[in-house]
Amino acid sequence: MFSLLKWNITDYIKRNTWILLGIAASLLCAALPRNSVGLLNNLLIGLASISGFIFFQAGILTAFLFVFRWAENDSVELELSLPVSSRKQVAVKLLTGALVNFLSLVFLLQLFLLIGRFSSGSYQWISGEHLKGILGWVVFLTFLESSVLFAYIFSHSYRMTRRAPDLFTALVSLVLIGTVVVCTVVIMAVTNQLIAPTFSTDSILTVEGNLQVFSFTLPNWVFLSFILLEWLVGSRLLQNRFQTS
């Protein structure tokens, strides 16, 4: 399991080296200026914020593609011929995706903190409080990825859906994600837990527990249990029915 994870992470890195380079470059651009005076400094700060946003999105997007598009590559025959249970196969894809999401979020937060030091005057280190806010996001993003992977496996598992796998992947994931999110919101509204998000002004990503959807409460447990469910059913389908050709 560990070496499978290692090789999946290696695979992600080798395919997406440009993102890692971009992330490093953005952080460097944000860290270099001593203050926000002068053209060069402002240019660097501007560059850092623009590229930071691009690479953050690229990180999330590539994690997404990595999780469900692996079965479209020629290497699928190698991966599916490994003596590994389908549960491990699926778990490792999701873990890799979650890890990339987590790192993308940490990167964005770090970038904000670096740039934020020019307006607040003092540099703030990443704290446990920040990371707690991130965890909720990771769960949510991983839930999205898990749903799409499940939909992908599902649509390649039945004679009918195999005829238009892309269409059914899109449909099933939309229905899944839509239902889960709507149900969660309804449950929260009914139980009076839904409070409109209010952003705190000093740092963008910590939301003071108000944005309930992304803090570790009811919705996160719902998302987590759906990840678990999709993982169990998805790996069963992968073992017994899944087929790409």
Binding site: N73, D74, S75
Partner: peptide, 16 residues
């Protein structure tokens, strides 16, 4: 699969 070594008819290795 532990007991079977498979050589597909095309390159199944990761491209990188």
């Amino acid at each position: 699969r532990q007991e079977i070594a498979y050589l597909p008819d095309h390159n199944h290795l990761f491209k990188w």
